[in-house]
Amino acid sequence: MIVQLLFALGLTLLSSGFTVSTATAQLASADSMAEPTSDPLEGVNQPVFQFNLKVDEYVLHPIATGYNAIMPDAAQRGVNRFFRNLAVVERFANNLFQGEFVDAGQEVGRFLVNTTLGGVGFVDVADPLLGWKENHEDFGQTLGVYGVGTGPYLVIPFYGPSTVRDTVGMVADGAMNPMSYFLSTIQILAVRAGTTTTRVINYRSMNLTLFEDADRYAVDLYGATQDVYLQRRAKQIEE
């Protein structure tokens, strides 16, 4: 078994184009003494964070558990892809805003292919068939690319971690939703509530142990969650 494993790993290492090089890039050797994350809105964020945890514990998690029990894994992934497919305008526009013209074009191509051949987006056929991967960009990232600072960390009720900049970006992305052009405000709110609820429950059902794992690992859950969000956002914008 060990020989087989080594053999398999050897092959995968070769096929992955494994290289060893001495780099000129600055290695992050001294970042460890950085100052703590600034959180001027913590007085508001903490209660909202606790509220969100309770909403999750008493509402979202039980519903998602039931949903998970009746919904096959493949169907959950399909529903997730369906909602991601619908967010094409947001990704297309933000790729364009950031000068990623090829990626923007691929987003349109992905939408057309997945909506037609992929059963209105439940199946991602564009990636395996054409190599067109989803290029997630949102308006918060676009603002970041143009040098707009993150602003303070912000926890949004029912939503979770964000920053002031990303919250502004989220509103802008919402305005790009095609529904905005065809429906009245009341209709939009009703439709959004329905789709958001379904999307969130589906996502939560795919990550049932999310908070349990985080809570297991964290000495300070608020600080751990905040840092995961900020580190990942910083990397997304950098890329």
């Binding site: 460890s32 950085a34 300070d220 751990a224 840092d227 995961v228 580190q231």
Partner: peptide, 15 residues
């Protein structure tokens, strides 16, 4: 993209 050292540090610094 999440450094475990940085993540622990954020928790400890908050405390």
């Amino acid at each position: 993209n999440v450094s475990l050292v940085r993540n622990y540090r954020n928790q400890f610094h908050r405390i």
